[in-house]
Design a protein around this nucleic acid. Structure first.
Length: 255
DNA sequence: ATGGCCTTGGTACAAGGA
């Protein structure tokens, strides 16, 4: 079983690339972030035509998440229960015997800003909810755009970017607190090439220079860890014309 | 360099992203 996550930075723009990628990369579940579509504009018919069931939670202009699956997702959850939020950032469902949580974590903009405070509140609420969710669903995967580079090795220039957004101690402590719930960063269960990133700025020829961050993650619960066979970042779609600034992350679970 | 790009909304340029 293969699962993947991809921040597509507008599904309206990227749908053809998503369908092409899915044809070449037969995953069972794909979590999407930054669909940037209200629910009535989600392209469920096109996806259905390609053999994908979907659940989606979107809004106009910003944010928006979805899960695409080969089988019907059940037990749908949109956003974090009990956390009043006007931003569409979470969609969860049961697929193939797994609890799948797809999430678009807040960016946070700048330490000390209102948006950063929101990011911290959102992370607190996510963690509290996941604690109960994990207790009820031991086979759980949390994947998406975390907007957190967990360690210095996840940053192309950790000196220049020390303490900046995605790299602050507070964000990294939040990431470790998620791991402490009993989750593992699937990517780090394996030896990986140095300078592995999942996002490259559109500016500065950043992709060509491989100047990026690893901020898109797949976390697996303890019960699933023995089944994780591989985890990789697929840089290929970042080479497309009009690419997303993020690349997909893929995990393989042995069944 | 308080920059460089991309998307949306809307039709000029601001906001947001990371």
């Amino acid at each position: 079983m293969k699962l993947a996550t991809w921040n597509v930075n507008s599904l309206a723009v990227r749908l053809p690339q998503v369908l092409a990628w899915l044809s070449a990369n037969p995953v069972d579940v794909l979590a999407l972030q930054e669909t940037k579509l209200p629910d009535d504009r989600f392209p469920h018919a096109e996806l259905e035509g390609a053999g994908w069931r979907a659940v989606w939670h979107g809004q106009k202009t910003y944010n928006g998440v979805a899960l695409l699956a080969r089988t019907e997702p059940r037990q749908l959850q949109k956003n974090i229960p009990g956390f009043d939020d006007d931003q569409a950032r979470v969609v969860a469902a049961d697929v193939g015997g797994l609890r799948i949580v797809g999430a678009y974590f807040p960016n946070g903009q700048e330490p000390g800003s209102d948006k950063f405070a929101y990011k911290m509140r959102w992370l607190d609420a996510l963690r509290a909810w996941l604690r109960t969710e994990l207790a009820a669903n031991p086979r759980l995967v949390l994947m998406g755009d975390f907007n957190i580079a967990p360690e210095d090795r996840d940053v192309w220039d950790p000196v220049a970017l020390a303490g900046t957004i995605h790299c602050t101690d507070e964000e990294r402590a939040q990431f470790r607190a998620l791991l402490a719930l009993g989750l593992a960063d699937a990517f780090r269960l394996f030896e990986q090439p140095p300078k592995s990133w999942s996002w490259w700025d559109y500016r500065n020829l950043a992709f060509r220079r491989n100047q990026g961050l690893r901020i898109d993650h797949i976390l697996v619960s303890r019960a699933l860890q023995p089944q994780v066979g591989a985890c990789l970042i697929d840089k290929q779609p970042r080479r497309n014309d009009r690419p997303s600034d993020h690349a997909p992350v893929i995990v393989e679970l042995r069944t």
